[in-house]
Amino acid sequence: MTKAELGEKLFSDKNLSFNRSQSCATCHDPERGFIDARRNDASDGDRASPASLGDNGTSIGDRNAPTAAYMAFSKDFAKGTRERSPSQQTSGVGEYSGYLGGQFWDGRAKDLAAQAGGPPTNPDEMGMPDKASVVARIQENEGYITSFKALYGETIFDDSDAAYDAIADAIGEFESKNADVFYPFDSKYDQSLTGDYIYDPASPAALGKTLFFSSDFTCGACHLLRDNLKDRGEIFTSFEYHNIGVPENTDLRAVNGVAEDFVDLGLALNPAIPDSEKTENEGKFKVPTMRNVAVTAPYMHNGVFDTLEAVLAFYEHAKIRARQQNNPQLANTTLNPETNQAFRAAEVDRNIEHELLGGNDLNLTPERIKAFECFLMTLTDKRYESLLDAQKVTECGI
């Protein structure tokens, strides 16, 4: 058995939670794009909840469980610069300087292994009291004991911390070494790069593809990692951190018991951020991948939007909001299509990337929003295409 094979077993093992009811796969379901597709009291109708229910059956988190797919490409969390290629410098957007990579929305886990080590001892997630308790659960299984000793040494269980790190390491190996499971690169978009799929030139999806890569929009600044538009290795995220002015999810907060005056400061809550830099990083969250985005709702770090239509309309709202900085008289009449009301104010109104958001030169009309959504549907891995809305697939010409 390899470390990755051991990690696969651990990933789905509910015995690693206090009530033996929850595993990594519960909140990162391999059959649903590695998100938590369950419903709970915070769900909107029959939609998945914006935050996950814990092993205790009562705790509901305050952030949306991000997909684990394609996260093997997120480098270790660190501060640095990213020189955007010409194809990513749309509307004059230049070099990025700040924090990059890591795992979780705020990058507090430097890599996949560190991320895997977080949930088991989180009281609101898998609920184990400490690392030693998790290791004790491992030792209930003779097969695990044999495998851990073979892979990590005969004395691995002499030190609970070392054994716990080995558990996390094995899960990290599973996530990073299994391309067919976590990063197959076999969507229709990928197939189009090899000639195995051709976008219908008259389809909304083809228009959306053209718009996405156009210099009229700033999509590529944050959602392109590679510098070659024909690269099958494109992840559709830069792993940068930005504040785009996402509103508070008041519906979620009304259910999960989070204090009314709590403000999610995102990256500024990461303990690795020096005190001297916390203020300038308030409200920033890691840019998510757009791969499988059409089947991994809800959206944003707090799951505040249920549909891609709402997300795209929000970007039109954000563009106008950005331009109001220089023209306060400019009216912002963009409505949230989910509520038919104006978008609420940003939860963190500091550090909003107005220059970036205001750089979209074309308006996101209903036709263009539809086209963008259609293109994003073509970023769906082949195994998840059955989860796409069949009517939209037909309408999009894909």
Rank of each mutant, 00 (worst) to 15 (best):
D62T: 13
T218H: 05
D227T: 10
F185C: 09
T90V: 12
S43D: 09
A390D: 07
K286H: 03
N19T: 01
L224V: 14
F11E: 05
T155A: 15
G266K: 06
K79W: 14
A206S: 14
A68N: 02
I235C: 01
Q88M: 10
S85M: 02
D227M: 06
T194C: 09
Q103D: 12
G54D: 02
T380P: 05
G7Y: 01
F34C: 00
C24W: 07
E248P: 07
K110L: 03
E277M: 04
S147F: 10
D180R: 13
R344Q: 12
G220F: 05
K9N: 14
A202R: 13
N351Y: 04
D196Q: 13
R47E: 13
K149E: 10
D389E: 14
Q191M: 08
S23D: 11
P274I: 05
L10Y: 08
T90C: 07
N256Y: 03
P129N: 14
S43E: 03
L151Y: 10
L112D: 02
Q139L: 15
I198K: 15
C219Q: 06
E248R: 14
L267E: 00
V293R: 02
R291Y: 07
F314H: 12
F182Y: 11
A272R: 00
S91Y: 01
S49K: 07
P120R: 12
F73V: 07
D251K: 09
R226K: 15
V246G: 04
F11L: 14
R226S: 10
R38Q: 03
D227Q: 10
S12Q: 15
I244P: 08
T90Y: 01
A72Y: 08
R82C: 02
F174G: 01
E5W: 03
I235S: 01
S147M: 15
P274W: 00
N64E: 06
E385R: 15
G7M: 07
